[in-house]
Design a protein around this nucleic acid. Structure first.
Lengths: 187, 187, 187, 187
DNA sequence: AATGAATGAGTATTCATTCAT
DNA sequence: TATGAATGAATACTCATTCAT
């Protein structure tokens, strides 16, 4: 008996992300994904029981990825200002380096049925644990988690997503946003 | 000659918003919209030449609506702090009062093909003109427009969208966000 | 009370022919015909009770036209050879001069439901009466009408229809066909 | 893996011919063809990538068939008169024996978009090669190919197609036509 | 495990025709 | 007479999923 071909499963996962990037979540049919993965449509149903579950599973996996990426860039000896800068720039460079995955996750998180399957707050727990430590040390202001999330994460994602159509220099914007966040959050 | 039934046109527009809210932009087929409007699918093609254009047109119309709503709540004699509070609370109460329309616009603006048809910056021109006046008077800090948009609009929209699944009291969150924005933006 | 607008009816008739030429009999919808005639679809149903009847009526009318055209080119004092030449060249030049109408008639006559509505033999009665006279005078061979029709009319129509895609010089072909017909039919 | 059901493919092909015969090329919808073949409409798209290609492929296949039929009835030792008789009677009996296919091919060849996909001259190459040999032997007159095609093939097809509505005895007609062709083409 | 074939239900859109003015 | 609005039924085609090998 052959074992599940992990290589094949990986190819399917990448195909999902790729097809959604190029065709949008609407145009991402099982047939297209199968073709992009050089696999039969029926094969996909060996790994996932239906399309919904397939997207949910891959969405869930990739949702965590950006926060792992972020955590790898954190160092314990960072100052408050450095922490904030690392978070903002980290999110931004993640979107640049993993454009396909980022776009995939964004699209999924706007899709009502899918976004319910992933608790965003679970994904970024580690990052918030870190922030809480800085708050307890009196370095960061003690704003609540949702407010913090809203202010620290959504604006930079917005800039990242619109960086192509903006007439301003994105690096200048990013510098400005870092300064704003430091002004806002440092004690 | 039979005249266009304006009531019918309005019903179609509401059906579009409603179906997209309940089924997501994926599941919003012309047939479902027609049924929700108690109209034949063919009738929809009297008012719009195809589905893409239909969504684009309704999306464009409703995109402006929230900013008109916002402008109606502004008064010339407001202080800087009042202005910021009015904007943040205005966006929030718009989302509550026009929940379906807000959700519809959010979904459309995440859909690549649709978001290109509406220039967000056109819609909020009036609001930004007002902000610019306060900047020139030295009341608000002179941050660039995209940064301002990112920080002033996206976080409150995020809170509004997630207000149901949050375990915190949304009103407390909102108070906090207003304070944050005032700290950040007032000179 | 207004009378039926003959001008309008004529415009409809021309639109039918034109649309069928450009779109084929498949693509010729009532809506397109109405638009080409600058008329409402509903107006067409004032003049014809349905699409089938509309096509049948116009088809019938134009079916006769080519034989009237032919008869106008006949002169009583023509020799047998001249008669044959006049018929062959007459059919050909009709297809060139009335390309739209010819193509319309050809398309309709291949459509089973339509071709039953017009008796070809009725249309060309005059031409055959003429031929019969020449037969009685011992100038033309006494072949039967269907054979004559088959041999005298279908080959030249075939050449006319394919004159664009043929690599031969159509005028040479036509000369040849005239000679063939004269050899074949003259006593 | 399920293998392609050749029987199914054949059924589809026959259904195409049959539906076009009964409903005309206008009325031959994919749904009707699928139903006639006792197959889902989707199945048809496994075998053909779209309707246009489906018709073109089947049309092309059957276009050749009548000339193969014709060639099988030719013998090398035939006299010129026998050759002409064999061609005329061969075409006729093909239309009788394969009435549906003949009618299908005729309808397709009148449809502008389809007729462009098949070069008639390719299909009857073998027959013309044979004719050319008789021409070189001085047995048949040296008329050009298009004239020959027009005179030898179109009249008999016309008679075949109208044999039901004619008030004359078709066999007498056919005898007459054979004689005409022999008079015309033999040296 | 893997697959191409097969399909019922669905997709956006157009059709010939009728309605209400 | 004339019309644009309205529509049920049809159009070609695609979908997620299952079947048979």
């Amino acid at each position: 008996m052959r074992t599940r071909d992990l290589n094949k499963q990986q190819r399917i996962k990448e195909a999902i992300v790729h097809v959604i990037l190029t065709e949008g979540i609407n145009g991402a049919s099982v047939a297209k994904i199968a073709q992009a993965a050089s696999v039969s449509p029926a094969t996909i149903y060996i790994y996932y029981s239906n399309k919904e579950e397939m997207l949910a599973e891959v969405f869930s996996e990739y949702s965590r990825q950006s926060y792992h990426y972020l955590m790898r860039r954190m160092q314990p000896e960072m100052s408050g200002a450095e922490l904030i800068e690392a978070i903002v720039r980290g999110i931004f460079s993640y979107t640049v380096e993993h454009e396909e995955v980022f776009s995939f996750v964004e699209q999924c998180s706007r899709c009502p049925s899918l976004s319910q399957t992933v608790r965003e707050s679970d994904c970024c727990r580690d990052v918030f644990n870190l922030i809480h430590r800085y708050q307890e040390l009196g370095i960061l202001r003690r704003y609540s988690d949702p407010s913090l999330y809203a202010v620290l994460f959504t604006p930079v994602k917005f800039l990242a997503q619109n960086r192509r159509t903006m007439q301003y220099d994105i690096n200048v914007q990013l510098d400005e946003l870092v300064t704003m966040m430091q002004n806002l959050l440092l004690v």
